[in-house]
Nucleic acid binder design. Structure first.
Lengths: 346, 346
DNA sequence: CTGAAAGCGCTTACAG
DNA sequence: CTGAAAGCGCTTACAG
């Protein structure tokens, strides 16, 4: 039985090159290139012989060399500030999916919210001659631009660039608030309170804005006249519910700025002996599966379609690589997901 | 004011090359190369002149061309089957961190658990002449090997390869169970029950095994003689607690196979009127921040040090690229994280 | 239909 | 100390 030996640099054979294939097939490397790339002016018989030789040698073309010639590498950089985040990951998945199913490979760089590290990665990516860049933010708040002296197209995803001349893709948070409020009204609710998250997040404010706008359209307004802002936590959700029940015991729905807040709200309502959805309906935002599906009752919420944000960013980047693209902020529609917490009482 | 025009392929200037720098500095491209790379045999004065020219042209060497010469690209492939997962992401973060802070760039590929897609990505990665590969699994269960006719070194992370001739890095799940049980015993608990997850997961079984072993060392055993296996969900945690309280009302601690299960257990205990940690201590596994820190009380748990798993995988890959590496499974120690749910009753 | 040659951007012996 | 030449692996006009 052979000793299990790990590969070392020395023993490892180099991959076959055009030259090797040419030698084996008994033709020139130019002919091999043409035969393998489906170019015309190659005799069918020759082409087959070359293909056999290539297969036998397990030949796969060196994409670096091709890229050097073509002036295009077929690579893009995905520069995130937060590999950790629940929100940036789905955006990256969408982008990876859009690129990876084609012949574009993506370089992953995590700047960890540090602009020094971002510059480092940016330089490395440009040295590798990526064809374009996607910048994935860690919050919905606008971020500073990378500038306009970068020699390749750039698309900002999730967090838009603060500079309107850049191309950005975001979820439609105003629309999300509207959809949520409309759903509650359709479920027959009229006394709707809003427990929002951290007021410093644009998403928090925009979702409230959308909800208020939708209620106005129905001749309604938020209970208490405005949303309660706090933190993106279950604790805040629980606390806010207690406040709310004391001040407005007759509410029939609570719209929350996030699923985590909603989860806290559900727990506090249950502990206060209020029935959901019979007595009070509850909704969240984000469609964080692990939270929303596991709450009691399961939570109706808004899916921000983050994978779509990533896919759209990828497509815009392709377009920009191929030519000009209209700058500005592209907004992706969100989607209602109904679960038990807003079930109709029929 | 200038019209905001997005870059198109045509108008975009090509990055400067050695030739451009040579022209500007009035020397040959060979001299530029030597000057910029700190090679000797260049007059100090000349070197400075070249450096100035390079700066002026914003020159950054084309790493593709360098790689073509060197036979090394300074890139690695990170092939995951599950970009979605709470567990694979931290592993990837660790690997990205270890590579990215050096001069290695990482290609991200998500196979989405599909072996066709995995083969597709594998081929693409090899065409790009990556120097090595890290395969990140989606569960702790061993996965099939990629084989041994791959021309670059491969390291498996999180999910080990089923083939002992491969190099794998995993968290020490047996050790995790031991640490958890030891902690409960140190907190003065003696009647410890175990609510595990899905029995088909190796991690579930190994954690139980570690806990049982640690208890034996203290002359104890699990309440009921064995662990309760179920699902990785809060619902299972709640249900199992009810069963447990009915059968063994005198337990003083519950060790759970995951934080999610523990979260369910905590909720059920509260609703049954049992005090945690006064009456019963509760522990989880995974240190899933969002769950563990937000439970009532906050949850003591075991951190699986997944970033370390990723970092270790990166270092092993480096070693393998530079020469031979001892095959086998490398196990990363886990770490106790104490919060309120096991606070000492003093 | 086939192949020799030039060239993508770089580095490295080797002459001068 | 400096530069002309060869070569990494490929593709693309251009001769034959």
């Amino acid at each position: 039985m052979a000793e299990p030996v790990a590969h070392g640099t020395d023993e490892r054979f180099k991959p076959a090159t055009l030259k090797d294939v040419a030698l084996l097939a008994g033709v020139s490397i130019a002919t091999v290139s043409k035969a393998l790339n489906g170019r015309e002016h190659v005799r069918a018989e020759t082409r087959v012989r070359v293909q056999h030789a290539a297969e036998k040698l397990n030949f796969s073309p060196n994409v670096l060399a091709q890229g050097l010639l073509a002036g295009r590498t077929g690579t893009v950089g995905l520069l995130t500030s937060d590999l950790d985040g629940r929100f940036s990951i789905p955006v990256m998945m969408g982008a990876e999916d859009a690129f990876g199913s084609g012949s574009t490979s993506v370089f992953l760089c995590d700047a960890r919210g540090d602009s020094i590290r971002e510059q480092h990665h940016l330089r490395a990516l440009l040295s590798r001659r990526v064809d374009g860049l996607i910048i994935v933010g860690d919050t919905t708040n606008p971020r500073e631009t990378l500038g306009h002296d970068i020699p390749v197209p750039v698309v900002y995803a999730y967090a838009p660039s603060i500079d309107p001349r850049d191309v950005s893709v975001v979820s439609d948070n105003v629309g999300a608030g509207q959809i949520a409020a409309d759903h509650l009204v359709e479920c027959g609710r009229r006394r709707i309170a809003y427990i929002s998250g951290d007021v410093n997040y644009r998403a928090a404010v925009e979702r409230v804005e959308g909800a208020s706008r939708a209620l106005s359209a129905h001749g309604l307004e938020l209970v208490g006249g405005e949303a309660l802002y706090g933190a993106w936590s279950e604790g805040w959700g629980r606390g806010a519910v207690r406040t709310l029940l004391a001040r407005h015991p007759d509410i029939d729905a609570i719209l929350c700025g996030s699923d985590q807040i909603a989860r806290g709200a559900l727990d506090a309502l249950r502990e206060a002996g209020r029935d959901v959805p019979g007595d009070i309906a509850v909704m969240g935002h984000d469609n964080w599966e692990q939270i929303a599906a596991q709450s009691r009752p399961p939570l109706s919420t808004i899916d921000m379609n983050l994978e779509q944000v990533g896919r759209k960013a990828a497509h815009l980047l392709f377009a920009a690589i191929d030519g000009a693209v209209k700058p500005g902020v592209h907004s992706i529609a969100t989607r209602l997901v109904t679960r038990g917490s807003t079930a109709l009482a029929d």
